[in-house]
Design a protein around this nucleic acid. Structure first.
Length: 348
DNA sequence: GCTGCATGCGCAG
DNA sequence: TGCGCCTGCAGCT
């Protein structure tokens, strides 16, 4: 359920809830026996790069994070991995951060009827690959594509194959420049390029579909056909969208004026887990997207039926009437002024 | 209770 | 390009 914004929220949760603490690590499932190597270590810090999460462990807290003794646990959630947090009130600042839902386990040992839940007695579900338990709470990992211990070189090797991350410092002009240059140098379709983590790190299928719609861009246009202005605009929009996602835990790409356009239509109720805050006034899922998972439904703007198609093993969603831009920037600049609405919306 | 899908990715061929 | 990984759950029966 991770696109980049979720992983950044996870890193923040680890930083606030477990960083600086000595922790116990284990692999209840048994498929990550290396957990024993860092059991009793101190969690120095957590970092997100694209969809990759790095947790740095050391024997003691005074170790420099670049020291050779530091063990980097690399986690990639893949399609169905997840972290579950439980702990003392305020642990990992979960509510404020939002992303990881506090979910007490299905089973607690030795719990008296009516007693307050105690996270220390939580029995990990059998599929738990890794449990990290600190003095204030714990985190359970299930179903990751990657969970491994790396040294500094191994960590760097992963960073080296990732493009700029719109949620990190490389969102600046240098990052934008890398993105624009890479896109415009390629014959590959823009839809495929946006999913290529070497081009830009952190985008998943939702952000791809929605970003292309907001740009009114044909998903099958080769990257090299795009103007510099169009690419720069997409990057700026992406920064705004993912920033909003990282702050709220929710992907919302619709402008307010477009959310109620077809209120009479019964939306598909199929779940898209957002792991976000449940604050009042949050934009409901069925109003959050323009095209993602809306195939067979009418476009919010022109009512043309939204289409979907497999591309390189993933489903692309788009409006065949709205998304006809091939290189012009006119539509973009007139109708999409830097996605400032995302910030206004969050503040409201 | 069963089936198929999902916000991903690496690898074989 | 297609498959395997490996988990949870919506949507069926």
């Amino acid at each position: 359920m991770p696109e980049g914004h979720t992983v950044h929220r996870l890193a923040a949760a680890f930083t606030s809830g477990l960083a600086g603490d000595r922790v116990r690590t284990s692999s209840p499932q048994g498929r990550f026996p290396e957990a024993a190597e860092i059991d009793g270590f101190v969690l120095l810090g957590a970092e997100a790069v694209g969809k990759h999460l790095f947790l740095a462990f050391a024997p003691s807290e005074d170790v420099d994070i670049d020291a050779p003794v530091v063990r980097h646990v690399h986690v990639h959630l893949g399609l169905y991995g997840s972290w579950t947090f439980a702990g003392d009130p305020g642990f990992a600042d979960v509510h404020a951060i939002g992303a990881p839902r506090v979910r007490f386990g299905e089973r607690e040992e030795g719990l008296d009827a009516g007693a307050a839940p105690d996270w220390r007695r939580l029995v990990p579900r059998p599929t738990t690959r890794l449990r990290i338990a600190g003095p204030r709470g714990l985190a359970d990992l299930t179903g990751p594509t990657a969970c491994e211990i790396l040294d500094a070189a191994g960590r760097q090797a992963i960073l080296d194959r990732l493009g700029p991350d719109p949620l990190r410092a490389d969102r600046d002009l240098a990052g934008r420049r890398r993105f624009v240059t890479a896109v415009r140098a390629s014959r590959t379709t823009i839809a495929a390029l946006l999913m290529n983590q070497r081009i830009v790190a952190g985008i998943g299928n939702i952000y791809r579909a929605e970003l292309l719609f907001r740009a009114r861009l044909d998903p099958f246009v080769p990257g090299r056909d795009l103007t510099e202005g169009m690419c720069e605009g997409m990057w700026e929009d992406l920064v705004a969208l993912m920033d909003y996602g990282a702050r709220t835990g929710r992907i919302v790409t619709t402008q307010p004026a477009h959310r109620d356009i077809e209120a009479r239509i019964v939306e598909r109720s199929r779940g898209t887990r957002q792991n976000g805050d449940e604050d009042e006034g949050v934009v409901p899922r069925e109003k959050s997207f323009y095209v993602y998972h809306r195939q067979t439904l009418p476009c919010r703007l022109c009512r043309t039926t939204v289409r979907s198609q497999q591309l390189a093993g993933r489903t692309v969603f788009w409006c065949p009437r709205c998304q006809t831009a091939r290189s012009r920037r006119a539509v973009w600049t007139r109708e999409h002024p830097a996605a400032a609405w995302a910030y206004d919306d969050a503040a409201a």
